[in-house]
Design a protein around this nucleic acid. Structure first.
Length: 481
RNA sequence: GUCCCGUUCGUCUAGUGGCCUAGGACAUCGGCCUUUCACGCCGGCAACACGGGUUCGAUUCCCGUACGGGACGCCA
């Protein structure tokens, strides 16, 4: 790789703060970073923003990593930890002081609170008034101080956001933000700028809640003589109430979606369509997303999370997924539903009968359970509707016919059914439904011929005979009543 | 309160001045298919926030209003 190519290579970063799980909004940001990097042949980096030592935990880091891995959004580089670069951050702040671009401020929290209170009263935007900025008295070391950036007082900051378009903010709206806390630790805005620069980040893709930080960060870049990256601020994801999705507000871990039976590709597919589109296309594989994604075509308005569309997309992906993908998933969900060690051969055989009927893997497992467990009881409503006295004879005749059957496959089974309904002048449903009740306990199942074939002769006949006994008993007691 | 951003069917969106009596998808409603349930197919309902401009012509451009969101921390 020559220098030119190095310069042209894009580098994006996903920068979560490890204060909790990875929720769907964060996952969407990660996805867009990933897609942008992949589409442009660049690098996607994970950087953990743990400058807030109070709230950051190792557990959260692990869970975020797990979530990204499940989604297939594993970083090309990292995870890097912002806290590892604390010395660099501190030195950079000091360097700014030495260059006269930052200064010590020894205002106390009480002073700052009072200042903000007054401003609020005057209906002004609360901000630091810069009273320590031009102080001539030498700062004393015994009084705690922070380092603040000398934000330009005049002019404005302008940048061409890849999503939002040109945004301009007057410097008069900004204040002298804190770079280093009184305990010497760097703040978020400083750390982000220093890290983005040193990691060679070319494109910052993040949530719209960061637009107000952007002018501050650009000022830090400029004070340092560095070139800011390109910015793309994504519209936020909202809950059903229209407010921003957050950990304490309606959002759940992405891993919850795995547990609820969603396929990672489907979740990504749903997420990418929130704000981005490619004509009328709704279903995308990961490969298609990478090939077609264009950050310039991301919309600017917030989207509301809607589960029913996710369900539909998940169903689409279930139907097109390779059996090899579905098999372990289905086995896992069956086990979660109390089926111990489901036979893989059986699962593989039944998979085609249930995959068209399920929107989630949980639903698929639920619809597959009867293959493993004979009905303990028969659904009342189904019994009343389908196990009618006039069907007892045909039902018994069918059981006899099936018992005598030499070949046990869907074709032979169907032929046996047809012969019985012809003999008794019935419609298929009148015979098929009672059999469903016998086999599954309910009147809903995949094609009953397929079900019987997959279940196997012994299990099927056992269930049919058990039901026949029940059926007879029911007719006798009804006759007496 | 101040600043920034947004506003097309219930929801996700297409649309970059005439192709729009505004297209697609989910949801919903009706029908078909059918051994049930799904899938699939066919069809219905349903939107350019409002008011001013600019223009021969605005969903598309400009201004204002309303509404919504975001940000205003020694959090990130």
């Amino acid at each position: 790789m020559n220098d030119m190519e190095l310069v042209m290579t894009t580098r994006t970063r996903f920068a979560p703060s490890p204060t909790g799980f990875l929720h769907i909004g964060g996952a969407r940001t990660a996805l867009f970073c990933y897609l942008f990097a992949r589409h442009t042949g660049g690098t996607y980096i994970l950087r953990v923003e743990d400058t807030d030592r109070e709230r950051s935990t190792h557990e959260a880091v692990a869970v975020i990593l797990q979530g990204l891995e499940w989604l297939g959004l594993k970083p090309d580089e990292g995870p890097f930890f912002q806290s590892d670069a604390t010395d660099l951050h501190r030195q950079t702040a000091l360097q700014l002081v030495a260059a006269g671009k930052a200064y010590r401020c020894s205002c106390t929290r009480e002073e700052l609170d009072a200042m903000r209170e007054e401003q609020r009263l005057r209906q002004e935007k609360p901000r630091y008034d810069g009273r320590c900025r031009e102080r001539t008295d030498p700062p004393s070391d015994d009084r705690p101080y922070v380092i603040r950036l000398k934000t330009p007082r005049d002019g404005e900051v302008v940048w061409d956001d890849m999503i939002q378009g040109r945004i301009r903010v007057s410097n008069g709206e900004l204040d002298d933000l804190i770079l280093l806390r009184s305990d010497g630790s760097p703040t978020y805005n400083l750390a982000v700028v220093v890290d983005d620069h040193h990691m060679g980040i070319t494109h910052v893709i993040r949530g719209e809640d960061h637009v107000s930080n952007t002018p501050r960060q650009i000022h830090i870049f400029e004070a340092l003589g560095w070139t800011p990256p390109a910015y793309a601020h994504m519209p936020l994801l909202h809950g059903t109430d229209g407010a921003k999705l957050s950990k304490r507000h309606g959002a759940v871990s992405v891993l919850q979606y795995r547990d609820n039976g969603y396929l990672p590709e489907a979740v990504n597919n749903y997420l990418v369509r929130l704000g981005w589109s490619h004509g009328d296309q709704e279903i995308f594989t990961m490969v298609e997303m990478v090939a077609l994604f264009d950050v310039h075509h991301v919309g600017r308005s917030a989207a509301i999370f809607n589960v029913s569309k996710l369900d539909w997309i998940n169903g689409q992906h279930i139907r097109s997924a390779a059996p090899e993908v579905l098999l372990p998933e289905l086995i896992a969900h069956l086990e979660r539903q109390g089926i111990a060690h489901p036979d893989p051969a059986l699962v593989r055989a039944l998979l085609p009968t249930v995959r068209e009927r399920a929107k989630t893997m949980v639903e698929m497992a639920d619809k597959s359970r009867f293959y493993f467990q004979a009905p303990q009881t028969y659904d009342d409503k189904a019994v009343r509707k389908h196990l009618r006295p006039e069907i007892l004879d045909p039902f018994a005749a069918l059981v006899a016919a099936l018992t005598a059957l030499s070949a046990w496959d869907a074709t032979a089974l169907e032929a046996a059914f047809k012969s019985v309904i012809a003999d008794h002048d019935l419609k298929m449903g009148q015979l098929a439904q009672p059999v469903r009740v016998a086999i599954t306990g309910s009147d809903v199942s995949p094609s009953i011929f397929d079900v019987l074939a997959i279940l196997g002769r012994d299990a099927a006949l056992a269930r049919l005979n058990a039901c026949l006994d029940f059926f007879r008993g029911r007719c006798v007691s009804e006759g007496q009543g």
